[in-house]
Design a protein around this nucleic acid. Sequence first.
DNA 1: CTTCTGACA
DNA 2: TGTCAGTA
Length: 122
Amino acid sequence: MKEKDLRRSLSVLPIGTVMKLTSLTARQIRYYEEQGLVSPERNDGNRRMYSLNDIDVILEIKDYLDEGLNIAKIQEIYKKRKEDNKNNDTKELTDQEARKILSDELLNIGGLNSHDAANNSF
DNA sequence: CTTCTGACA
DNA sequence: TGTCAGTA
């Protein structure tokens, strides 16, 4: 599985492709990099080259944003996720661990929704 | 033509 | 965020 992982980490997509794949504007994509959420390489002429991994991350960012999270929250989530990866560096994620990470992220989302006062209807 | 940085409404 | 300017 390392071959695919390596390929997935190859930065070969110009920002124009990322725009089409994520339905985001170049402005937003660059902004997310500014916030440290993605780290595209800089090949020729100082141009950003994204990897499939980056696409995945950006898509996730878009999802979180859609759920009402701000950049700060997303940064926290990724920071926590990084620490989690440090914890189990040599072994694969068990289903339980994956669940824990996901629920933890969802917890972060739910605990900070200030825009859904209407949700009190249940 | 496509992308980059900085800046302003 | 959108968008314009001046480059590379």
